[in-house]
């Protein structure tokens, strides 16, 4: 599914004295089955753009197309539905729910879809197996190391088998070796036919051979790529 942005704007606190335009007229086309990286300094609007693409928020102006569908006008219920089925999210702070086990964390995004429990457990276990975490399934997530937590976050992003994977500064909390490992995992996901969208200002990410296209953002505008 191709993602197309047409002249997208995002203004925070619109109409108030502290109004701030984080995205100023971005037009983009993101090809399917590619690994695309949004690069830029902190505060350049990467996360804001990503959250609009991932249906977590809505643009103030402009249009976003996901394949045939126009996202910008949909009501929240539909956005949630698209988000569940189409996107998998990996966040900078991993955002796992502490106190719950690794397995439970991975299964969370599937709860609203209510699949058969045995099947879901099997899928989750298979994912854990693939990322070498099978032995940690019952552990609470707060016992995990950074690299392990990152992999659990990837598993959780994959549980609903999404077409598009969105990762916001996924390597910010990892050292160089773990960051390389992460890019390796991204490569494998790319091979399984998924679209991957990463934001980063980490050279390990945007200089990596896995990344096929780099789009540079500066002050809410596209400057290169």
């Amino acid at each position: 599914m191709r993602i197309v942005l047409e002249n997208v704007h995002k203004v925070f606190n619109q109409g108030r004295p502290n109004a701030h335009e984080a995205i100023r007229g971005v037009s983009l086309s993101i090809e399917p089955n590619r690994v695309t990286c949004l690069k830029g300094a902190s505060g350049s609007g990467k996360s804001t753009l990503l959250s609009m693409i991932g249906c977590l928020s809505r643009p103030t102006a402009g249009r976003i197309h996901l394949g045939e569908r126009l996202l910008s006008g949909l009501p929240e219920r539909f956005l949630t539905d698209i988000r569940r089925h189409t996107f998998g999210f990996i966040f900078q702070q991993f955002n796992l729910i502490s106190g719950l086990s690794v397995l439970e964390n991975i299964m969370l995004p599937a709860y609203p879809l209510a699949p058969d429990h045995r099947q879901l457990t099997a899928t989750a276990s298979a994912l854990l197996d693939r990322f070498g975490l099978a032995h940690k399934a019952r552990n609470p997530v707060q016992w995990l190391s950074g690299g392990e937590a990152q992999r659990v976050a990837i598993c959780r992003a994959l549980i609903n088998d999404p077409r598009i994977l969105i990762a916001d500064e996924p390597t910010a909390n990892l050292d160089t070796r773990l960051s390389r490992d992460f890019m390796e995992q991204i490569r494998r996901l790319r091979e399984s036919g998924r679209t991957v969208l990463i934001t980063s200002h980490d050279p390990v990410v945007f200089d990596s051979p896995v990344v096929e296209r780099v789009i540079e953002l500066c002050d809410g505008q596209v400057v290169g790529g």
Binding site: L56, E76, T80, R84, F89, F91, L108, P109, P112
Partner: peptide
């Protein structure tokens, strides 16, 4: 609050 944010981000509806 953070947890509810996470749940919504990973695809839970307000209703859920």
């Amino acid at each position: 609050r953070r947890e509810i944010g996470i749940l919504k981000a990973v695809g839970w509806e307000t209703g859920d």
